[in-house]
Each structure stands twice: as structure tokens, then as C-alpha cells.
Amino acid sequence: MDIDVVFEVLRAFVTALILLYLWRVGKHKQLRQQRGWWQIIGGFSLILFASLLDITDNFSSLNQYVVIGKTHTESFLEKLVGYLGGFIMLFIGFSKWFPLVSKLQSTEAELRNKAAELESKILSRTSDLLKKNDELEQEKKLLAEAEKQIRQLAYYDPLTLLPNRRLLNDRLAQIMAASKRNSRYGALMFLDLDNFKSLNDAYGHAAGDLLLMEVARRITSCVREIDTVARFGGDEFVVILSDLDAGKAESAAQAGIVAEKIRAILAEPYVLEIQQTGKAGATVEHHCTSSIGVVLFINHEDSQEDIFKRADIAMYQAKDAGRNLIRFYDLKA
């Protein structure tokens, strides 16, 4: 087969493939509506038509089937019109299409830049939000700590860390309500230190503070977790025992055991390491006892005020009797 024939066949085949591809891609309506699309299709169609004429001209046996182009001149003109017309239409089509493609590429690049810019802003904003979240978490922790400190100051003695009067009243109300429900006695002890002032006078308030903290520790070691130990003020402490017995005598016996345990441990010597400004530290052994007044209560028979008053009366009876003693309030006395 002549090389020209092979070339013409390949050219027609490639042109046909291009047309087929463009036609299949042209199923998308948006693409067909682009300017220059149909000129490109028409241009490749004319080139294909001219290529087919070239092929038939190279096969003389097929000339009898060719309807158009009886002479070589007519055949040449037909091919010239096909190729020239095809290339002109391709030029027109691509000249309309390429600016659109360039514009689309520019738009695509712009969109990519916008997307990158947006992603950068999102990352920056996310970083800012994470930072703010960390700051809020830190503030939340600080607020929780501040709330804890406020509660500590509002309900606890800052020196001994025992409940103060406000929390003591609340605890007493709860224990009185429980006593009414279960018909069991409770007991309140009022403690006053017997030899506290002499320590303050000799070594100052720092020494007194050390002793008060040790007193708080010793009293707390003598009671149950359900009981309450509070600092009433100065060198005065209050102990509330809950859920004793349904019988008064049995409850008094139980309260007496706890009171005696407290009296005995508070009477033991106190060894205090005292630091004084401008002086060397000193170790002081101090003897300090306590006078304890005890009152029983049950079923809301008495008010809180009456309970405190009666325990205070019993405590002063212990002091008047010689100190380092326990006295129960006797309603008949």
C-alpha cells in the first residue's frame, strides 16, 4: 500500500476519533453552549470529509462510487474547500473557545487562591479559638479555685480549718432534723481552754495560734466522721455528736465517754516550736487543760439558741468546780 494512502487513512482515523471524543464530551449541555463549540465540530467534520476524499482518490477502484468530483480538478477543489473550510472553522472556533478556557483557568486559579486564603483564615481562626478556649479553661479553673477559697473563708476558720459559727449552725440544724426523724439523741459540747491566756502573754499570738491548731487536731481525732468539730471563737470550741441512742441515759453515757477522751487528750503537754522575730527559735512545753459543758437534745424539744446557752452554762459550771472537768447540763439544777 502506498505511504500516502496510509497517511491519509491515519489522518482520517485520528480526525474521526477527535470528533467522536468531542461529540461524547459535548453531551454536557454547558459545554455545547460555549462559544465556538459548533465551529470546532464543523471544522473537524470538514477535515474528515476532505480526508475521506483523499482516500477515495488514492483507490482508483473506488472512484466509481464517489458521487462528487468527476475530474482531478473538481476533486482537488472539493478537498481544498474541505481542508481550508475546516481549518478556517477551527481557527474561528478555537479563537472563541481559548479565551473562555483561559478565563476559566484564571477563575480556577483565583478560586484556588481564595480557597487557600480561606483555609489560612480558618486555620488562624481555629488557632485563635483554641487559644481562647484554653484561656477560658484557665479562667474557669481560677474561678473554681476562687469559689473554693470564698467558701472556705465563709464557712471555715482560717487558722484551724474547722467549721466556723455559720457552718456550725447549719450542721446543728441538720443534726436536729435527723434527731426528729430517727428519735435518737444528739449531744453538743462547749469547750473552753483553761490556761491559754498565759501562753499568749508570754510568747505572743504566734504561740497561741500553734496551740489552737494542735487543739483542733486533737479534738478531731476523738470523734467520728459524722460528728462536727467547730471553732466557736478565741479559745472556745464546739463538738456536736449525732445519732447516739434512743434512750437518754445511754446517750449521756456515750457522750460522756467522748467528752472524757477529749478532756484527757487536751490535758497532755503541748510541745511548741516558736519562731520569734529577731530572736532564735524556742521550744516551749505548755500545759493547758479544758472545761467541757455537755447538753443532750432530741426531737426539736429545744431551739438552737437554748442548746448553746445550756452547754455554755454547763461549761462554766465545770470551770467553777475547778477546771479540767466535764459537766452535763441539768435542767433541774
Rank of each mutant, 00 (worst) to 15 (best):
A50L: 00
S51L: 04
S51W: 07
L52K: 00
L53D: 09
I55Y: 08
I55C: 03
I55R: 00
T56F: 14
N58I: 00
F59R: 11
S60M: 07
L62C: 04
N63R: 12
N63T: 05
Q64W: 12
Q64K: 10
Y65V: 01
V66L: 09
T71P: 02
T71G: 06
H72W: 08
E74G: 05
S75V: 05
S75A: 09
L77H: 08
L77C: 01
E78S: 03
L80N: 04
L80S: 01
G82T: 04
L84H: 12
L84R: 05
G85N: 10
G85Y: 13
G86T: 10
I88F: 15
M89I: 00
L90E: 11
L90W: 15
I92W: 15
I92T: 08
G93C: 00
F94I: 12
S95I: 02
K96M: 04
W97N: 07
P99R: 07
L100H: 09
L100V: 02
L100R: 10
L100Y: 08
S102L: 13
K103Y: 07
S106C: 08
S106G: 11
E108T: 13
E108W: 14
E108G: 06
A109T: 14
A109F: 14
E110S: 09
R112T: 03
R112H: 11
R112I: 04
N113E: 15
N113K: 12
N113H: 14
K114S: 15
K114Q: 15
A116D: 15
A116T: 14
E117K: 14
E117N: 15
S120F: 14
S120L: 14
K121D: 15
K121L: 15
L123V: 08
L123N: 13
L123A: 10
S124H: 13
R125T: 09
R125Q: 13
R125P: 02
T126H: 07
T126D: 07
T126L: 05
L129K: 06
L130H: 02
K132S: 01
K132W: 02
K132T: 06
N133V: 06
N133H: 06
D134G: 03
D134M: 07
D134R: 15
E135D: 05
E135W: 04
E135C: 03
L136D: 04
L136H: 05
E137R: 15
E139M: 07
K140V: 01
K141V: 02
K141G: 04
L142S: 07
L142W: 05
L142K: 10
A144N: 06
A144V: 00
A144W: 03
A146R: 10
Q149L: 09
I150R: 05
R151F: 06
R151S: 13
R151Y: 11
Y155R: 01
Y156A: 06
D157W: 05
P158Q: 12
P158D: 13
L159G: 05
L159W: 10
L161Q: 13
L162P: 06
P163H: 08
N164P: 03
R166W: 09
R166K: 12
L167T: 10
L168K: 00
L168H: 04
N169R: 12
N169Y: 10
D170I: 06
R171F: 13
R171Y: 14
A173W: 02
A173V: 04
Q174S: 06
Q174K: 09
I175H: 12
I175S: 13
M176G: 02
M176C: 05
A177D: 05
